[in-house]
Amino acid sequence: MEFPTALVLNAIIAGLLLGGFYAALSVGISISFGMLDVVNIAHPAFIILGSYIAYIVNGWMGVDPIVVSLVVSPLFFALGILLYRIYYVCFERRGQESLRGLAFFFGILFITEVALVLIFGVDYRMVRTAYSETTWRLGPVDFPMRLVVPFLVSVTMVVGVQLFLTHTFFGRAVLAVAQDPLALRLMGVNPTRVKGLAFALSIATAGVAGAFLIVIQPVQPAIGREYIGLVFAICVLGGMGSIWGTLLGAFVLGIAESFTSTFFGPSWAPAVSFGLLLAALGFKPSGLLGR
């Protein structure tokens, strides 16, 4: 097999751009799974939900999907609060999160997907934006704007989440809840409340990531599942609960996928993330930047 320079360069750039987007998909999982120990396998369902909301509003008023997603993110936040409440009351408090809690999120994932199928059918939907068709060229390397714009917003969002976690009282409380909930209680902060808000934040990021998704590619209800392995792979690969690790893991995965589809064909790409996840789980569960 040959690796022509232009092809390799393009694969790297496409991988990095894709990686930035993947970071937005997985930052929520890094919060919920990595920090709060809430195994929200329904996360991708909320991403797809975000895609469809952006799609509807865009078709209705012509607003850019990313703008839509930022405007409706409080709704996702509220949904997150509600969901965590149910999870806490029904599973966490009873110590049943490992089996029934997982089944619960699986059910939510499934219901969301089937409901979207019933409403929108299984056709692929997409959104055309002002920059969808534009591509910058730098020598042999392409910078398609439909990847660049989500990349920029996404990296901004992920860095913003990291700064928020390290530089605000609430953020530090979230980091503390991951380490030692008892100490937090002694400080007069209710860990359940902190967890609820942090979980809501994770769902809000999913909604925004959904808008990126529909800008980048056509969306269909069932594709959410393909991202389950991806987001967990990135979270585990990056080291549970480390936002910088998530960003790094996302870039690694983006480049790996981009190379796979360039040199072996796109039909093999989905297996990359899962293969990496299995490998990461099997051999180095502490991740790249693991504690």
Binding site: I41, L102, A233, W268, P270, S273, F274, P285
Partner: peptide
Amino acid sequence: LTLRMRGVFFAIATLALAVVLYTF
């Protein structure tokens, strides 16, 4: 591969397994 770790990793791995085999 996964049962030596916390139970949830097994669950996630089985999610991944379906997609890997499907692609294969």
